[in-house]
Write a protein that binds this DNA or RNA. Structure first.
Lengths: 124, 124
DNA sequence: CAGCATCCCGTTGGATACTG
DNA sequence: CAGTATCCAACGGGATGCTG
């Protein structure tokens, strides 16, 4: 597996592509919110209280561009926009879920490792 | 699942923690390189030609701090440092591998979606 | 309601030079 | 060989104000 690193340009490493894609500040939170079912723009804002309107729009556009999220506009007044996971997005979430499980199970371990590291840097 | 978004502070979402951790520019590439077995600093530089020495050091330190990578110094002249996955790091990679498989299988689909999106933005 | 446009700052990461 | 230190450019992302 190691040879894929040198044999291909960095950018084309598929694992890296999706991790940098979904590894930004808001993408997974949006995907998690949408995995509960379709959701309007304003509903997503309530789901993720800390996100700014700019970043929600921007991240949704990116996810739509990647084919992970669908966007359906109802041109009423006021306008209404529904977002949903595509089949591709849902299949990605099926991969993320076990990873989430791992994260939950091992978060304490990571936190403990950090404490040990910071401690032995400070004192010993 | 959606309620974990509002019921907890953003930072404590475990999925997000590991994704922002491993989602930076170099972490996974290093973890992939190390999943082939222990590796010296200079060997890692060769495995990942584009990485700067600064970022290799920095990222290795972070991974070590998180308990994902071990660092063993042999104080000879010239010095020798061996890096390896810890048990925790290896178990994380067991989660990443299926995700990598997904990425490889669906990369074309994502690329196609992007082309469609960019095309319909430009013209029609 | 669901955006877009602008300004601005903090962080990430690259280039380069030096060291035990 | 395996780092550390410094400087600097680029990008991500927050705050604010305006619009169909």
């Amino acid at each position: 597996m190691r040879d894929i690193l040198t044999s291909t340009p960095i950018e084309s490493c598929p694992v890296r592509q999706i991790l940098t894609d979904v590894g930004d500040k808001w993408s997974i939170l949006i995907l998690i919110a949408l995995s509960g079912g379709p959701r309007r723009f304003s509903a997503l804002r309530r789901d993720i209280p800390d996100i700014s309107q700019k970043m929600l729009t921007q991240t949704l556009r990116k996810l739509e561009r990647d084919g992970l999220v669908s966007r359906e506009v109802t041109p009423s007044t006021p306008p209404r926009v529904d977002y949903d996971l595509t089949a591709l997005g849902a299949s990605l979430m099926h991969q993320i879920t076990p990873l989430a499980g791992w994260a939950v199970r091992h978060l304490d371990e990571i936190t403990a490792a950090r404490r040990r590291f910071d401690w032995s840097s400070t004192s010993g």
